[in-house]
Nucleic acid binder design. Structure first.
Lengths: 191, 191
DNA sequence: GTTATCTCGTACAGGTGAGTACGAGTTAGA
DNA sequence: TCTAACTCGTACTCACCTGTACGAGATAAC
């Protein structure tokens, strides 16, 4: 239970926090071991300003993760998941592959500093949506049922992670990623 | 050019080195940031003994990587890769999935401390074998050709990595891994 | 049994990052 | 304009890890 603030935050503080969280997301996605100073520099603020808003580094990592998951949730909920599950899956992947792969890296950063249960709580809702879609596809007979559902969900995340890596190392152009990812995942799920 | 030793190593030293390298492989596979002390403890020797044989931590990481790649090479070369590429792939995966996924984790540890080129040199031969197999499958018309070869090789490694994670977190039993991995990879490669 | 080698504890130096303390200067908001 | 809130630099403490130095005791090899 956070002690209620005596007064609303000032606008500049609000802006600083937003800058810091955004910098934490992008910095930690590239380097899970980034220091508080790295993040402060990336945000264009002093290290002390960061500590003014986040008590400890784990607090900051958690804030970054929460923000990324919130953004992901927002993007995912805007996708039309009705109709043929295969088409829905393509739409889902096209609009969210980069976000999911970013979250994957952030998740790795979080696993080092946050208690296990905390992460599971935060991340629970995110995977639910794709799981539901796969289950519907299975019910309609267009997705395979010979492998565990949890495995299918997880292997898709790893494929996205792999795609992000190919992009980083320049073996795959950004324009080609969505196509490659979609084909690969469709192959994995096809019944 | 290493200065030639005046005399052969003593047997107990040889044994210590083997223990240390083995401990480094297993420890770094779980935690890429494991300290020299962690590894020494896992090996059942003192930290100073480690420094007696490996000048620096990067040297130790490299030795662990080299050893893992050598073991992988050994296992892979024992696999019969003739006949139907799909069957050959199954045999390859069955006998090497755990080794490859261990190498992947070790590789991540190595990337933090070794120069980029050094890693590429060491790892070059390993992926070649599976790449050759996939190419043969493509030539014979049983593997897809609509995705880049480098992507196919890489995504397989990520699938293996995902399987290793499922195993660690207990969502997949060890006995089931080979089956799940094989089915998944076959789906990805099928033309 | 002699000797060079090996093991490994203690102790140290150097570096780095987390988090705290203080305080001077700046700015938003009423 | 007045004040509380915010920014952020300097300067610390604390903890941890790396790598080195020294040295006493164990042991493999001859």
């Amino acid at each position: 239970m956070a002690p209620t603030r005596t007064r609303a935050r000032r606008a500049d503080a609000e802006r600083s926090i937003a800058l810091i969280v955004a910098a934490a997301r992008s910095t930690l996605s590239c380097d899970p071991d980034a220091t508080v100073d790295d993040i402060a520099t990336a945000a264009g603020v002093g290290r002390m300003t960061v500590y003014g808003h986040f008590k400890t580094r784990p607090d900051l990592v958690e804030a970054a993760l929460v923000d990324a998951l919130r953004a992901g949730e927002e993007t995912l909920s805007a996708v039309d998941l009705t109709g043929d599950p295969r088409d829905a899956l393509s739409r889902l992947l096209a609009s969210s592959w980069s976000l999911v792969s970013e979250s994957a890296a952030l998740l790795a950063a979080a696993e080092k500093v946050l208690p296990e249960g905390r992460i599971r709580d935060l991340h629970a809702g995110a995977a639910d949506r794709i799981e539901a879609l796969i289950r519907r596809g299975q019910d309609e007979g267009v997705f395979r049922t010979d492998l565990p559902l949890t495995w299918l969900v997880n292997v898709i995340q790893h494929v996205l992670h792999g795609a992000a890596e190919e992009l980083r190392t320049g073996r795959l152009r950004e324009a080609a990623v969505a196509e490659v990812v979609t084909r690969t995942v469709q192959s994995i799920l096809a019944s």
